[in-house]
Nucleic acid binder design. Structure first.
Lengths: 214, 214
DNA sequence: CTTAAAAACCCTGAATTCAGGGAGTTTTTC
DNA sequence: GAAAAACTCCCTGAATTCAGGGTTTTTAAG
């Protein structure tokens, strides 16, 4: 008697779920027991069906309501023995990094081939992690990037000023808002431009937005 | 003898293509003749296989290289009798609007059900257009919005300049890049500030990022 | 208590942006 | 073919930013 692994899929893109299903249904050892379109439903299902051993969760990152990141965190906290494979279209280094830090067992891009998908699933079920070479390189980049750029730790005041700059306030206005001299604000702007290695307001604004400061 | 419709699919997310295929292969009258992962390949295929009548193109919007919008435009210009159904995960009113203006025959979200997909395909093949009520409401919103706020339609040149501004280039640099006088770029910057109702570089940059121009 | 970092402030001068105009040419649209 | 929109270029002058130097005071850490 062969071992059959139980799989849950969470993705709000139904056609994608169909794609997964059509691939997995040809595999005798892989059994899709449930599919949902958001994170909450997965947790609900797991709680109700505690007697059923689930081996693998395949989830998207972006979903309405609880997303893949939060879902994975909750599952690793509350349940045991459930591996997680994240499949997403986005290839955002920072997000993937937080996933690996949260013990996700694998990550695939949605443009992966069937072959790679099955390889990832089998590898994860065997107890290993799976991150494609492509994803690995993105991860490495994100790591080195964070060493480079976030070496620049901004002080609270600098963040305040940066936010106001990004909100289109002039130096004088920021000075008025923070009850400081405009010279002070000019110093901050100058330091920010140096620290963040940008050239002008546009660069500061981009940094602020990219780091979700506004 | 039944009529069989020939379909081409363009989407870089292979698993999604598999999902589509698994749905469509159960339909006797729908025949997938080719799948590609970008727009260029579709055009290449169509040019080589001119004798083969293609009835429907199913395409994503976001693809590496030529995207769905450009692809549809090219197809409507160069080939006849090919309907287009766009399936995308994004629900950006402005983009959908440009699609309808470019004679796309239908639009579906990637979280649509099988049922709706087949309904859309059949309706389009029968000569009608298909836009789900959900999409229609987004469209209406985009229209009314565009009357309110985004009456600001930027020209191609304006977009180019805006992009370069947001990338921290100075006026002189942009002038050099576009082979224009710096006075011209100054005019563009001024007009952009007026049109977009912002105050400075920071505002322009924010607009550019919020509208995904960089 | 000492030292370092952060926060606040000041100065000069060049470069750039911003705001307000005008004006000619080409391209699109009706 | 006329009208509108887009594209290009130019001018002036004020405001602001940018780049390079500073100083002093407060706060945090060893």
């Amino acid at each position: 008697m062969k071992t059959v692994y139980n799989i849950i899929i969470a993705d709000d893109h139904k056609m994608f779920v169909d794609g997964l299903r059509s691939i997995l249904e040809h595999e005798d050892d892989l059994n899709i027991v449930h599919t949902t379109s958001n994170g909450e439903e997965v947790l609900k299902y797991l709680k109700i069906n505690q007697n059923e051993q689930i081996d693998l969760l395949i989830t998207d990152i972006n979903m309405p309501g609880m997303d893949g990141i939060a879902l994975n965190k909750n599952i690793k906290k509350e349940f045991f023995g459930i591996k997680t494979l994240v499949i997403s279209m986005l290839e955002d280094g920072a997000k993937i990094k937080t996933l690996t830090e949260n013990e996700v067992n694998g990550y695939l891009s949605k443009n992966a081939e069937q072959k790679e998908l099955l390889k990832a699933i089998r590898q994860i079920l065997a107890g290993e992690n799976y991150f494609s070479t492509h994803i690995q390189s993105i991860l490495v980049q994100a790591m080195t990037n964070s060493r480079k750029t976030s070496e620049v730790r901004l002080t609270q005041r600098e963040k305040e000023v940066l936010q106001l700059i990004a909100k289109e306030h002039t130096t004088q206005e920021i000075a008025d808002i923070l009850f400081l001299s405009k010279h002070t604000i000019e110093s901050y702007r100058k330091n920010l431009i140096n620290k963040l290695e940008v050239r002008n307001l546009a660069g500061l604004t981009r940094y602020a937005i990219e780091h979700k400061m506004i």
